[in-house]
Design a protein around this nucleic acid. Structure first.
Lengths: 207, 207, 207, 207
DNA sequence: GAATAATCGAGACGGTACGTCTGGTCTTCAA
DNA sequence: TTGAAGACCAGACGTACCGTCTCGATTATTC
């Protein structure tokens, strides 16, 4: 069982008996998402309740996932928006697009509810966190770092900075507003504003 | 009942019967912290378990706090480190001290465990989140913004930037490493590295 | 745990904690009877449903009885009519009274339907059957055998018969009609008819 | 569907499609008997388990019987011993043979445990009980009553007794020992002992 | 032959109930 | 009032079967 496929799959040769319904599968995952969006915390989510919401027998859930956590891995996967298309024109535009996609995610109830919930369980469920990290966090990180490295190669980004750190700096403000200031609005020009501020630096010109 | 005192106080005239033991109170709060440090998530923490850990009857806890959440408010308060002393020499040094105190908090199991846990419950418990925000987040934010405003007044910080946003940019990287990359090390010179990178900007000199 | 008390009693020294509520106990047994009277078959009776009817948690039932069957033993006991008063005038009258009480039980059972279905279940669980036998069957048996022995001593009953067997013969017809022929009516003079037939013998007089 | 055939038979016109396998049918009934002989109680016997034991799909069972109980009727029928051959020499001998066959059945039941437990279940389902009664109980009853009537005609049995009642009296003791006293031994001479006791009557000679 | 159709084993499906467990509240005891 | 203990209702846990419903495959009859 890999991190990208936590399912209780067997693939044991020729199909025997009635095949599992994909519609049922989708109904379950949709049900979990619906509950999370309604503000139900991950800890309050019982298999019993999920089954009730999805109109499904408990056994049908246990047939597919070993437990709550493995189910959530698939929920996360299903809710994750695709990587943004980078314009590739210049460093600034690429960074703006990356940040803008983060902003959109923060605005989407679904994704942010899932981030909150998954993060909440992180400590108590390393496996879930690992899956989330592997599926969601790390690819985005890699994308950002690649953009920055390209910028360094182009001479658009200082060669003496740690790209890993710069990546954290770039996405940091969005995370602060999602986590520490959920009331803060993610206004339209925010992505541009952040990128330009970072590129120009904080020191007054001429100093 | 104020946000800063969520306790189930009664003040019922002359004391009758055995007085409440303050030692018991401390034992309970210490017990919660111990459990949180051990990686027990807030949702998994039951009054039952807290009582067992603290060697205390369940009723004794309910006699003091209305529920889990109100207890946690006091736990948060007890765990919060004091605001750092600012040198006040220049903007850079003040920012470095602020960030360094954040880094120290991240290194301390206790505080970061509490941040994680409290944040996890945020959605499902607005009251707890409000208390945490009021007690911990907002004062720090105010401090940072004040430092930045002083910098603008001094001419050490560009006048055309939004100090609220800059504050988010400054603390962002630390949060990214605490939340999204718990494995990333918070190395010794990190605070300086971040501040200097931000002040100088990302663009190569001369562009 | 004795046969006469299948309850999960402990009696371990001084009472600690909240004592069990007798009202709850009565509510449960009453609930079972109510359901049985309403025509709910014993097989349809689940602990879950009993708990719901009695307004009680399932654990509260399991705290008192090991399972459905042991609960039924107490239901039976609660519904069991007292031993009949024997006139003691002569063997015939005593036997008639014994049989008449059996007949009454049969009539009562049929109308209330309680004991009839409970008894049906009994045999599938040897332990429970033993308890039922000890509490209900055996005392009646002893009573009958005593009456017969007194009859032998008086010269009212042949000395060369096995009283155990005779007792079986006496109560047999009633059982046949209760078990094998539930449609047969238990008419008013049945007890007398049986006793007289047995005393006189089946052979025509003079043979 | 008649009482004597509780099966879900259709026989509607010309056979179409693959015919039902009789081997499968036998395998199912054999499987149930095997499980009962292994000491599996009737309550523990699920359709699921029967299907597993017989190496058969559940639907294959439901295609033939409406449920567990109807299946048991056929199991009982398959296990039922044939009616005894009556000598016809005299009333006493006929009754002894009838009772002796009952005794044999009791002994067989106790060793094999099949009918004993099946019979226990019977009463909770009126329809099934009717089928069992029609197939097993009633024919035996008719046989006994016929014997008794012949006895009255011969002058071997008093003319003033109710033969239905006498039949109950005759088979009663055997039933008492099977149902109420499963521990009582069914000794070799029991049939004769009962019949002779009944014929002679309980009153001491000369009274 | 080719269609047609009911069978077969297998197992998924929505449910109900199992007996156990934990949670928060209530109630008693002894100090 | 305190600690301890345990009863109380509530409800989730993961499992076992229920009776129904698909599946692919098999085995007959009918065209």
């Amino acid at each position: 069982m890999s991190l990208t496929d936590s399912r209780t799959g067997h693939d044991d040769g020729p199909a025997r008996g009635r095949p599992r319904s994909e519609a049922v599968e989708r109904a379950i995952i949709e049900g979990v998402m619906k509950l999370l969006e309604e503000g139900v915390s991950l800890a309050e989510l019982s298999i019993e309740r999920i089954a009730r919401t999805a109109g499904v027998g408990k056994a049908t859930i246990y047939r597919r996932w070993r437990g709550k956590e493995e189910l959530f891995v698939d929920v996360v996967r299903a809710a994750e928006p695709p990587d943004p298309e980078l314009p590739g024109t210049c460093l600034r535009d690429d960074l703006v697009v990356l940040l803008e996609s983060l902003r959109q995610r923060g605005l989407a109830n679904r994704s942010s509810a899932i981030l909150h919930s998954v993060h909440a369980q992180m400590k108590s469920s390393p496996k879930l966190w690992a899956a989330y990290h592997h599926t969601v966090v790390e690819p985005r990180r890699r994308l950002g770092v690649a953009v920055l490295r390209r910028g360094q190669a182009n001479g658009e980004l200082r060669a003496d900075v740690d790209v890993e750190l710069v990546n954290d700096i770039v996405i940091g403000p969005m995370l602060v507003r999602a986590i520490l200031r959920p009331d803060a609005e993610l206004s339209d020009g925010l992505a541009e504003q952040i990128v330009d501020t970072l590129l120009d630096g904080l020191r007054p010109p001429g100093n």
